[in-house]
Design a protein around this nucleic acid. Structure first.
Length: 554
DNA sequence: AGCTTGAGCGCC
DNA sequence: AAAAGGCGCTCAAGCT
């Protein structure tokens, strides 16, 4: 059963029950309090709550202490269906551009203004959009039922991801300000009272100025720094630590130390801590499906880029533990399953797929296995990685064939799709790849540029199918885990997800439940594999650590 | 004054 | 050791 929610979460709300056939009952009009009461009373029947945008509706429920188990996010669904190859010729695809298209655009910034007054925005009626999405899926099912099932799964998984993202933001990740502050003081010196450069950084800046004989140098200014380095006789073209590391000069050591400290200060310094950590919790803003491939992004806080340096500040509460689980070599396992490549799946039967490649005699060392596999996934064109490719192709023709085919498709300027049906964008109007290459009268330089553009786009589509399908697996994994964690709750508390990092999850749990959580994480991974790939015998191996501090994992 | 761009570096 | 796919975020510089 579906209940479509329209209106505004803190104003007036209409609930419209829609049955599986898409027939809507009479809408019920409620005020904000009535809305909360209605959700509370209907939730035990496990309806699927349908709303325009989870980020708009769910926070109000969470603040009222109300979780929901299942939902349908129309904004996320619209974006998938609008761009999917599978929906060509369907009514949703052919509909004139409307506010759902705007809201579904990658920026997503306009979502709030668009939906604040919900149904009153032209063409934004969620009941109509929900029915249209159902019709679209039905139409896909008529020609390809399996394709429609996968798209339906994708919409459900992403909707659940959106619930999880809001729940993680609401609860936050346990974060010890004192540990973080101690780390900052150790690395940078005491917090400057009125902003400005901390003492240890300033001392390093002085060393740099002395070594370069440039008393007024601001090491934060890339052009100034580059000029000063050249004046000191160093042959450099940039100021990255990559370039600098090769050089021998008294300035290099303090300069590298300065860059490291400046990075820590600006990305995760005191200002960051004040902005993002409250009451011992870091509240990240995830953007579900924020990346074209379907991976998540963040908006502020940088939860997906927490540097190793500060992970020690993530500490379980007293009497609680952190269970950190990481899917090992996820993308190779994904392409093995997509291509139904028995040989690669067998190599992944080892806990370490790279070691499995060595044991199978494909390559001689684990390092070679890793670099070869990354080359296959990213489209290496040179170096060790490219040299090892033929061995992989011989050993795993199906899996490698799948990513090669995705690359060729992209080079022609065509779309590729993930396992569940998210399609890659079509190249922009200024893309000159395939067409320009095929014209014989193109100037040589244009021709070269066109070929380069085609190859670049091919590397993107090659990676898209693996990265995007891995993201789908990960959302199914998390959705299953979320459900299992609920069942583990007891009087000691309830374990809950606190971090998601592409192929890694963290659960904050009462310590006595840590083993059960580890079991749940494993079972959820197995479930996700079966949900996507049925009985194809591919293992999704996990590395699981129960720790009190994030920096103890791995 | 406010916006975009590029360099740089952190993550998977 | 480097390279290849996807990002976010910050700063300074360059632009309007």
């Amino acid at each position: 059963m579906f209940i479509v929610i329209a209106g505004s979460p803190r104003g007036s709300v209409t609930l419209t029950e829609v049955d599986a056939a898409g027939v809507a009952a009479a809408p019920v009009l409620l005020d904000a309090a009535g809305f909360l009461a209605a959700v509370a009373s209907r939730e035990p029947a496990r309806p699927r709550w349908v709303w325009s945008d989870t980020t708009l509706w769910y926070p109000a429920l969470l603040e009222a202490g109300q979780r929901v188990e299942r939902s349908q996010d129309l904004r996320l669904g619209h974006r998938v269906l609008k761009l999917s190859e599978a929906t060509r010729g369907t009514p949703l695809r052919d509909a004139p551009a409307n506010s759902w298209d705007d809201a579904a655009s990658p920026a997503g910034d306009h979502a709030n203004t668009l939906f604040d007054d919900g149904a009153s925005a032209p063409g934004a009626d969620p009941v109509a959009e929900f029915v249209l999405q159902r019709q679209t899926l039905d139409e896909v099912a008529r020609s390809d039922p399996a394709r429609a099932r996968r798209l339906t799964l994708l919409l459900a998984a992403e909707s659940c991801g959106a619930l999880i993202a809001e729940e993680m933001r609401f609860h936050g990740m346990p974060w010890r300000r004192d540990v973080h502050a101690a780390k900052l003081e150790e690395a940078l010196g005491p917090r400057p009272q009125f902003g400005g450069r901390p003492a240890r950084l300033e001392a390093l800046a002085d060393q740099i100025r002395a070594a370069l004989d440039a008393p007024a140098l601001n090491p934060d200014s890339q052009p100034d720094l580059l000029r000063a380095l050249k004046r000191a006789g160093l042959a450099v073209t940039g100021t990255s630590k990559w370039d600098l590391r090769e050089l021998r000069h008294p300035v290099i050591e303090p300069l590298l130390a300065y860059k490291k400290g400046a990075r820590l200060l600006s990305a995760n310094g005191w200002v960051w801590m004040d902005a993002w950590v409250q009451d011992g919790r870091f509240h990240p803003e995830y953007v579900v499906g924020g990346v074209v491939t379907g991976r998540w992004a963040t908006r502020g806080g940088g939860a997906l880029q927490l540097p190793a340096e500060v992970r020690g500040a993530v500490r379980a509460d007293e009497g609680w533990s952190l269970v950190v689980a990481d899917a090992a070599q996820l993308e190779p396992r994904i392409i093995a399953a997509m291509a139904r490549d028995e040989a690669m799946a067998a190599a992944g039967r080892e806990r370490d797929l790279y070691q499995g490649l060595v044991d199978a005699g494909v390559v001689d060392t684990r390092a070679h296995a890793k670099v070869a596999m990354l080359g296959a996934l990213y489209g290496a064109t040179s170096g060790e990685s490219a040299r090892l490719m033929p061995r992989l192709t011989r050993a795993f023709p199906r899996a490698i064939g799948l990513v090669e085919a995705a690359a060729r498709t992209g080079e022609r300027g065509e779309q590729v799709s993930t396992w569940l049906g998210r399609s890659s964008p079509v190249p922009g109007d200024d893309w000159e790849g395939a067409d320009a290459v095929s014209t014989t009268d193109a100037a040589p330089t244009e021709d070269r540029r066109a070929r380069q553009a085609a190859r670049d786009w091919g590397r993107f589509t090659r990676n898209f199918v693996a990265q995007g399908t891995a993201a789908e697996w990960a959302m199914c994994w998390m959705a299953g885990l979320r459900k299992r964690l609920r069942l583990l709750a007891d009087e000691g508390g309830e374990p809950h997800l606190v971090l998601f990092l592409h192929d890694e999850v963290m659960v904050h749990t009462p310590a006595h439940l840590a083993d059960a959580v580890g079991h749940a994480v494993t079972e959820a991974a197995n479930d996700a594999g079966r949900l996507l790939f049925g009985d194809f015998p591919v293992d999704f191996a996990l590395t699981i650590a129960t720790v009190s501090s994030y920096d103890e994992a791995k």
